[in-house]
Simulated assay, not measured.
Amino acid sequence: MWWVGTHGGSGESTFATLLSGSLESHHTWPQSASPPPGGIPVVLTARTSFHGLDSSRSALTQWASGAVPGVELLGLALVSDAPGKLPKPLKDFAHLVEGGAPRTWRVPWIEQWRTDPPTAPDQRGMPTELRKLIKSVQALILKR
Rank of each mutant, 00 (worst) to 15 (best):
M1N: 09
W2T: 02
W3K: 03
V4T: 10
G5P: 01
T6R: 10
T6C: 14
G9L: 02
S10H: 07
G11Y: 05
S13V: 10
L19V: 11
S20F: 01
G21E: 11
S22Y: 04
S25Q: 00
H27G: 10
T28M: 09
W29L: 04
W29D: 07
S32K: 05
A33R: 12
S34F: 11
P37E: 03
I40R: 04
V42N: 02
T45M: 08
R47V: 03
S49F: 03
S49M: 08
H51K: 15
G52N: 09
D54C: 04
D54R: 13
S56Q: 02
L60G: 05
L60K: 05
Q62Y: 00
Q62P: 01
A64S: 12
A64Q: 11
A64Y: 00
S65E: 01
S65C: 02
G66T: 07
A67R: 09
V71I: 09
L73A: 01
L73P: 01
L76M: 06
L76E: 02
D81S: 15
A82V: 10
K85M: 07
L86W: 08
L86V: 08
K88T: 15
P89M: 10
L90T: 05
K91C: 12
F93Y: 15
F93A: 11
A94K: 07
H95V: 10
H95E: 15
V97P: 09
G100A: 11
G100F: 07
P102R: 05
R103G: 02
T104A: 13
W105Q: 04
R106Y: 13
P108S: 09
W109H: 07
I110P: 09
I110G: 04
I110E: 09
E111H: 13
W113H: 06
R114L: 11
R114E: 14
T115C: 08
D116N: 14
D116P: 02
P117E: 06
P117K: 03
T119Y: 06
T119S: 11
T119A: 11
T119I: 13
P121A: 04
D122K: 07
Q123M: 14
Q123L: 15
R124P: 06
G125N: 01
G125L: 05
L130Y: 13
K135V: 00
A139G: 09
A139H: 11
I141K: 14
L142W: 03
L142F: 06
R144S: 08
R144Q: 11
